[in-house]
Design a protein around this nucleic acid. Structure first.
Length: 287
DNA sequence: CTTACGGCCTGGGTGC
DNA sequence: TGCACCCAGGCCGTAA
């Protein structure tokens, strides 16, 4: 599932293949994951790729129109759970569930394949970008420790939910949230506001270290993920807890467990990440 | 503000 | 071999 390191890897591949390329034509199959399919077909042909940006798990392809600079648009791509982008010869075999084809002026095409169609595509003007992406939080690799602390300590949600909440920090999903919490020795159910300064510091450092390492290894390929050249990432070999239920903790040897936290399966070591004392709240003692 | 949950979607795994 | 069932989870909308 593409999270920040996987999307970053894809963004880099797209920069290499797409900068300066012109889009010649658009072909669509299923369109239920596209905000306005007609706008895709109408506005993309003839545009040139100026820039590829990544905001959390979102990709933005900034385009210059053929008729000058007056009407610049961006193509928003969110890969959801199973979205894949390939930049490849039109003669290559077409995988199942390929729904978008953009033919390019170098003879190749960009293909979007998405089994579950949890992804999203949209054509956005500058003002629409603000509307659609304005709620996003800060990049976890750019946020300061001070700002991170403020965003965690001000919340009464479980820390796992905060890490998954894209308006707090943007880009982490289930894998990297679990991994960061294990490194920081924090139980996923611990409430953000109850973290100690030392815990926040460990979490901040763990989050950044893990994301950097995962980007270096081109992401985690646990199910469908692959980059724009069809290559898999290798960070899954470094997972300490994610999907390691029943295996030994690399730090203390006790067994990794899992539980549902914030509606997601969460993996942790109960010995390294002790469960928070659940304070009996609002059972006010009477008389 | 917060949590909880259903819905979207398909393939892979399990149990019978 | 088939079939019913459940699970994976990012994100959005709704309800409490």
């Amino acid at each position: 599932m593409p999270e920040l390191p996987e999307v970053e890897t894809i963004a880099r591949g797209m920069r290499e293949a797409l900068l300066g390329r012109r889009i010649l034509s658009v072909r669509l199959n299923k369109t239920d994951f596209i905000d306005d399919p007609a706008a895709m077909e109408l506005r993309l042909p003839g545009t040139t790729v100026l820039q590829i940006r990544r905001l959390g798990k979102n990709l933005l392809v900034d385009l210059r129109s053929s008729d000058g600079e007056k009407s610049s648009v961006s193509l928003l791509i969110h890969l959801g759970m199973t979205g894949q982008i390939a930049i490849i010869s039109p003669d290559a075999p077409i995988p199942k569930h390929t729904h978008v084809f953009l033919s390019l002026d170098d003879g190749r095409e960009l293909r979007y394949t998405d089994v579950r169609r949890f992804g999203r595509m949209a054509i956005l003007s500058d003002s629409e970008q603000e509307r659609v992406l304005g709620g996003l939080g800060v990049e976890p690799l750019e946020i300061s420790e001070t700002e991170f602390r403020a965003r965690i300590l001000s919340r009464n949600s479980q820390i796992k939910a905060l890490l998954l909440n894209q308006s707090v920090v943007r880009g982490m999903g289930n894998i990297y949230a679990d991994e960061a919490l294990w490194f920081a020795k924090i139980h996923p159910k611990k409430v953000g506001a109850k973290l100690t300064d030392a815990e926040v510091r460990r979490l901040y450092r763990a989050m950044q270290q893990i994301l950097k390492e995962a980007i270096r290894l081109k992401g985690s390929s646990v199910s469908d993920y692959q980059d724009t050249d069809g290559q898999k990432g290798t960070f899954q070999a470094r997972h300490r807890v994610y999907q390691r239920d029943g295996e030994k903790c690399f730090r203390c040897g006790s067994l990794i467990r899992h539980d549902t936290v914030a509606g997601r399966s969460s993996h942790f070591c109960l010995r390294c990440q002790p469960a928070p004392r659940n304070r009996a709240k609002k059972t006010r003692r009477r008389r």
